[in-house]
Protein backbone atom coordinates (compact mmCIF):
# COMPACT_ATOMS: atom_id res chain seq x y z
CA UNK A 1 0.00 0.00 0.00
CA UNK A 2 1.51 3.22 -1.14
CA UNK A 3 0.59 6.42 -2.87
CA UNK A 4 -1.88 9.24 -2.33
CA UNK A 5 -5.10 9.24 -4.29
CA UNK A 6 -6.49 12.70 -4.84
CA UNK A 7 -9.70 13.20 -6.83
CA UNK A 8 -9.86 16.64 -8.38
CA UNK A 9 -12.31 18.56 -10.47
CA UNK A 10 -10.10 21.53 -11.28
CA UNK A 11 -10.60 25.17 -10.52
CA UNK A 12 -10.06 27.09 -7.28
CA UNK A 13 -12.14 24.66 -5.21
CA UNK A 14 -9.66 21.85 -5.93
CA UNK A 15 -6.66 23.85 -4.76
CA UNK A 16 -6.91 22.93 -1.05
CA UNK A 17 -7.11 19.25 -2.02
CA UNK A 18 -4.13 19.49 -4.36
CA UNK A 19 -2.07 21.40 -1.79
CA UNK A 20 -2.93 18.89 0.92
CA UNK A 21 -1.87 16.01 -1.35
CA UNK A 22 1.44 17.74 -2.14
CA UNK A 23 2.08 18.47 1.53
CA UNK A 24 1.36 14.86 2.46
CA UNK A 25 3.54 13.56 -0.39
CA UNK A 26 6.41 15.75 0.81
CA UNK A 27 6.03 14.36 4.33
CA UNK A 28 5.64 10.71 3.37
CA UNK A 29 7.67 10.65 0.15
CA UNK A 30 4.89 8.96 -1.79
CA UNK A 31 3.60 9.41 -5.31
CA UNK A 32 0.33 11.28 -5.88
CA UNK A 33 -2.38 9.84 -8.14
CA UNK A 34 -4.55 12.70 -9.29
CA UNK A 35 -7.91 11.39 -10.44
CA UNK A 36 -10.29 13.17 -12.81
CA UNK A 37 -13.68 11.62 -13.51
CA UNK A 38 -15.52 12.39 -16.74
CA UNK A 39 -19.16 12.63 -15.79
CA UNK A 40 -21.74 13.57 -18.40
CA UNK A 41 -24.84 13.70 -16.23
CA UNK A 42 -25.36 17.32 -17.19
CA UNK A 43 -26.08 16.22 -20.76
CA UNK A 44 -29.17 14.25 -19.77
CA UNK A 45 -31.42 17.15 -20.65
CA UNK A 46 -29.82 17.86 -23.99
CA UNK A 47 -28.55 15.95 -26.95
CA UNK A 48 -27.71 12.36 -26.19
CA UNK A 49 -26.28 11.87 -29.69
CA UNK A 50 -23.35 14.09 -28.73
CA UNK A 51 -22.37 12.04 -25.71
CA UNK A 52 -19.61 10.03 -27.40
CA UNK A 53 -17.96 13.01 -28.97
CA UNK A 54 -18.21 15.28 -25.94
CA UNK A 55 -16.92 12.51 -23.69
CA UNK A 56 -13.66 12.58 -25.67
CA UNK A 57 -13.52 16.37 -25.47
CA UNK A 58 -14.05 16.42 -21.73
CA UNK A 59 -11.51 13.67 -21.31
CA UNK A 60 -8.97 15.92 -23.04
CA UNK A 61 -10.03 18.78 -20.81
CA UNK A 62 -9.52 16.48 -17.81
CA UNK A 63 -6.01 15.66 -19.03
CA UNK A 64 -5.26 19.38 -18.95
CA UNK A 65 -6.58 19.70 -15.43
CA UNK A 66 -4.46 16.73 -14.37
CA UNK A 67 -1.39 18.08 -16.15
CA UNK A 68 -1.87 21.36 -14.36
CA UNK A 69 -2.04 19.57 -10.98
CA UNK A 70 0.97 17.40 -11.88
CA UNK A 71 2.94 20.51 -12.81
CA UNK A 72 2.05 22.01 -9.42
CA UNK A 73 3.18 18.80 -7.69
CA UNK A 74 6.47 18.76 -9.56
CA UNK A 75 7.10 22.33 -8.48
CA UNK A 76 6.57 21.08 -4.93
CA UNK A 77 9.22 18.44 -5.55
CA UNK A 78 6.92 15.40 -5.56
CA UNK A 79 6.01 12.87 -8.20
CA UNK A 80 2.50 12.73 -9.54
CA UNK A 81 0.49 10.75 -12.07
CA UNK A 82 -2.83 11.48 -13.69
CA UNK A 83 -5.71 9.04 -13.95
CA UNK A 84 -8.81 9.63 -16.04
CA UNK A 85 -11.98 7.63 -15.59
CA UNK A 86 -15.49 7.76 -17.06
CA UNK A 87 -18.47 7.34 -14.77
CA UNK A 88 -19.85 8.32 -11.38
CA UNK A 89 -17.29 10.08 -9.20
CA UNK A 90 -17.75 8.12 -5.98
CA UNK A 91 -17.80 4.78 -7.77
CA UNK A 92 -14.64 5.66 -9.64
CA UNK A 93 -12.86 6.76 -6.47
CA UNK A 94 -13.71 3.39 -4.93
CA UNK A 95 -12.63 1.57 -8.05
CA UNK A 96 -9.28 3.43 -8.10
CA UNK A 97 -8.75 2.65 -4.41
CA UNK A 98 -9.19 -1.04 -5.18
CA UNK A 99 -6.86 -0.85 -8.15
CA UNK A 100 -4.04 1.35 -6.83
CA UNK A 101 -4.27 0.44 -3.12
CA UNK A 102 -3.21 3.93 -2.00
CA UNK A 103 -2.12 4.57 1.56
CA UNK A 104 -4.08 7.84 1.66
CA UNK A 105 -7.14 9.25 0.03
CA UNK A 106 -7.56 13.01 0.07
CA UNK A 107 -11.13 14.25 0.13
CA UNK A 108 -12.33 17.83 0.03
CA UNK A 109 -14.67 18.78 2.85
CA UNK A 110 -17.98 19.86 1.30
CA UNK A 111 -19.02 23.46 1.62
CA UNK A 112 -22.51 23.88 2.93
CA UNK A 113 -23.44 26.58 0.44
CA UNK A 114 -22.56 24.54 -2.63
CA UNK A 115 -25.49 23.00 -4.42
CA UNK A 116 -23.92 20.13 -6.26
CA UNK A 117 -21.56 18.59 -3.78
CA UNK A 118 -20.89 14.94 -4.25
CA UNK A 119 -20.74 14.39 -0.54
CA UNK A 120 -22.82 15.98 2.11
CA UNK A 121 -21.20 16.25 5.52
CA UNK A 122 -23.38 13.35 6.68
CA UNK A 123 -22.32 11.08 3.87
CA UNK A 124 -18.66 11.94 4.14
CA UNK A 125 -18.13 9.78 7.20
CA UNK A 126 -19.85 6.72 5.76
CA UNK A 127 -17.92 7.06 2.51
CA UNK A 128 -14.64 7.21 4.45
CA UNK A 129 -15.65 4.00 6.26
CA UNK A 130 -16.42 2.36 2.94
CA UNK A 131 -12.99 3.34 1.61
CA UNK A 132 -11.27 1.88 4.66
CA UNK A 133 -13.17 -1.32 4.18
CA UNK A 134 -12.29 -1.59 0.49
CA UNK A 135 -8.59 -0.70 0.56
CA UNK A 136 -7.59 0.23 4.10
CA UNK A 137 -6.54 3.68 2.88
CA UNK A 138 -6.44 6.44 5.42
CA UNK A 139 -8.88 9.17 4.47
CA UNK A 140 -7.60 12.69 4.91
CA UNK A 141 -10.02 15.61 4.81
CA UNK A 142 -8.98 19.05 3.68
CA UNK A 143 -10.09 22.19 5.42
CA UNK A 144 -12.81 24.32 3.89
Amino acid sequence: MSGILCAIRGGPSSQPTILKAIELAQDTDQVIYFLYVVNLDFLTHTSSSKTNHISKEIEEMGEFILLSAQEQAEKGGVKAQGIIRDGKVLEEILSCCEEYKPAYLILGRPQEDMENNLLTLERLGSFADQIKEVCQAEVVFTEK
Binding site: R9, G10, P12, F42, L43, H45, M61
Partner: peptide, 17 residues
Protein backbone atom coordinates in the same frame (compact mmCIF):
# COMPACT_ATOMS: atom_id res chain seq x y z
CA UNK B 1 -30.58 29.18 -23.78
CA UNK B 2 -29.51 25.54 -23.98
CA UNK B 3 -26.03 26.67 -25.04
CA UNK B 4 -25.69 28.56 -21.73
CA UNK B 5 -26.55 25.46 -19.73
CA UNK B 6 -24.14 23.29 -21.72
CA UNK B 7 -21.34 25.79 -21.24
CA UNK B 8 -22.06 26.01 -17.52
CA UNK B 9 -22.17 22.21 -17.28
CA UNK B 10 -18.76 21.74 -18.90
CA UNK B 11 -17.21 24.66 -17.01
CA UNK B 12 -18.38 23.11 -13.76
CA UNK B 13 -16.68 19.85 -14.80
CA UNK B 14 -13.49 21.90 -14.92
CA UNK B 15 -14.15 23.31 -11.46
CA UNK B 16 -15.43 26.70 -12.56
CA UNK B 17 -19.03 27.23 -11.60
Amino acid sequence: ASANMITAGIAERAGYK
